[in-house]
Amino acid sequence: MLRFILRRLLVAIPTLFVIVTATFFLMRAAPGNPFDGERKLPPAIMKNIEARYGLDKPLIVQYGDYLADVVRGDFGPSLKYTGKSVNQIIAENFPTSLKIGLPALILATFLGILLGVIAALKHNRWPDYSAMAIAILGICIPTFVTAPLLVLIFAVKLSWLPIAGITQGLKSYILPVIVLSLPLIAVISRLVRAGMIETLNSNYVRTARAKGLPEHTVVIRHALKTALLPLVSYLGPACAAIITGSLVVEKIFGVPGLGKSFVLGALQRDYTVVMGVVILYAVLVIALNLIADVLYAVLDPRVKLT
């Protein structure tokens, strides 16, 4: 187990290195630069600004400096927001993203398991068909369609919920969380359904039934426990989906989260912000995948990590 974790951490280092290097040089290859404003700056001022951020040094030296800073956990100053460091921007905006992402993940897990279990228990009957129809819709309708449609219905037409922003307390979180969780509900319910159908037909569940255990004990204590295992390994991809979805959700609902900082940073050539966010998300995805694999091995004694 310990060897497995160590090996995975060792693979993570070149992965992160590739990410840092690729984004660094790609961003620099991008036409335009962060100081292109409405008016062209006089060359002398431009030179001063570039010198201040070290942008006048050879690219390879800048790259070396950046690597050394990143290893120490310092993502440098933002090039667009004067006086703000990327670490500060992340510290301000990441919690906002989490406030939408975490509830969405929890809601999706809960509803996904519920739908999946119902579908499996009523296999090939109408609850199964309707649950799976919902799942297909959830997979086929992307967040950038559901988000504006739900805003149109619940905010514009019915005026029950705010159109955008997160300033109106709990009410303003309802739509973003629902939109973010819909595709996950679809995938999770399909996973749980498949797992449940398999375990409900397995011998140990038949044994449990033969012992005369009540149905809910058989379903929850015996079948569900095994059927939920595939869900653990979906943890990593699920978080990646939440992160991608948050780019759309934060744009539509005008949420000042990290996804919005990233898109804005990319458009404005704010090199350091873009790199900081990419690195943070890469570390998150790698860490969550590792946790999922370790958790899987702990929960399922049949799995041996090597």
Binding site: T15, I19, T23, I243, F262, V263, V278, A282, V285, N289
Partner: peptide
């Protein structure tokens, strides 16, 4: 392991 959406952007 790359967050590929970011990479494409």
């Amino acid at each position: 392991a790359l967050p590929f959406v970011f990479f494409v952007i």
